[in-house]
């Protein structure tokens, strides 16, 4: 039995149910790093290469935190999960492709990495090749892998379905693993719906986005994100663009924004973007142009390691005031 560490960053917020369940069902123990703290961020900023984006630095911090607590670090090379895009060539952002190498070279005293290549483009949506590779490395039988994968996929499906019922991904993860009553977004009366799009690791990590989601909820906002939409709803947006982007998460963010704007389901659109993110220089501009075309109020929130709550709060309050004044006028 191995202890397998999973850093709480990047793909964590999207694929945890699948891989955590899979590894647990193979009879191993999963150790997750704690939610991002100043400590973890500082450590990541110190260890990672200087020109990496904040999420990648953060990942280094989480990985460093797990060193010494696990026998293996789960750090797959995420290449692609589907055949999509103009040439069927959609991948993850280049930093995901090089992540295991970056982590291995950047951090000392790390346990060996479970750096299985996840490249599903040629296989449709099957995760079997990946599961078999991980299972082999962990010394499990094929039969056990098959069963564990089945359970992992089931966990992933229930996670996706909770998200699609309107739960935020972090709450849905809670619900899947800790059996917490699936609380939908409630609380104070919600008079405004805002679509928050961007990368899952920017939206669902409250430390890095300076509490954006909490601030919105305190102000009586109902939040919808791209992760609450089904693949079909998202992919339908594809034909509205002259050309798709190259990157998986970027396409999801843009499709999500387009969906909420064209369906008129959101009063405003917020794009959470991480400082020094290359793909976001395209995503942000695309969303800005589309928001103008749709007449949807648009607020980009750029976060970096120095982002204070005050700056985010001022912008969000002003944005909500604007929406409420506009509504009152109508």
């Amino acid at each position: 039995m191995y202890k397998v560490g999973i850093p709480r960053s990047l793909a964590y917020f999207v694929y945890l149910p699948l891989w955590k369940t899979f590894i647990t069902e193979l009879g191993h123990e999963v150790v997750e790093s704690p939610p991002t703290s100043r400590d973890i961020l500082d450590r990541g900023v110190k260890e990672a290469v200087n020109d990496a984006c904040i999420p990648i630095k953060l990942y280094h911090g989480h990985a460093a935190h797990l060193a010494g607590q696990c026998d293996l670090l789960f750090c797959p090379r995420l290449v692609s999960v589907r055949k999509h895009g103009d040439f069927g060539s959609e991948t993850f952002c280049p930093k995901f492709l090089g992540l295991p190498d970056m982590v291995r070279l950047g951090l000392k005293d790390l346990p060996p990495l479970l750096d299985t290549r996840i490249d599903l483009k040629p296989f449709g949506s099957g995760n079997w090749e990946v599961a078999r590779d991980i299972g082999q490395r962990l010394g499990n039988s094929m039969a056990r892998c098959r069963r564990a994968l089945r359970l992992g996929m089931a966990a992933q499906r229930s996670f996706r379905s909770l998200c699609q019922q309107g739960m935020l991904a972090d709450a849905a993860l809670e619900a899947v693993f800790n059996g917490v009553e699936p609380t939908r977004q409630t609380g104070t009366k919600q008079d405004i719906t805002i679509a928050v799009v961007g990368y899952p690791y920017a939206i669902y990590d409250p430390y890095i986005n300076a509490g954006l989601i909490k601030i919105l909820q305190q102000q009586g906002v109902k939040i919808v994100t791209q992760d609450m939409l089904s693949e079909r709803e998202l992919n339908r947006q594809n034909r509205k663009l002259p050309k798709t982007l190259f990157w998986y998460f970027s396409n999801r963010a843009v499709y999500g924004g387009l969906h909420f704007m064209s369906e008129g389901q959101a009063d405003g659109l917020i794009h959470v973007t991480a400082f020094a993110c290359g793909p976001d220089s395209m995503v942000d501009r695309l969303l800005e142009i589309e928001a103008k075309r749709h007449g949807t109020p648009y607020l980009p929130i750029a976060v970096d390691e120095h982002t204070g709550e005050a700056g985010v709060r001022t912008r969000v309050e002003a944005f909500l005031d604007m929406l409420r004044y506009q509504r009152r006028r109508r």
Binding site: A318, M322, R329
Partner: peptide, 12 residues
């Protein structure tokens, strides 16, 4: 028409 429709602030 007397209503804020867009705004921006400087970054850091």
């Amino acid at each position: 028409d007397g209503v804020v429709t867009d705004f921006a602030m400087n970054t850091v």
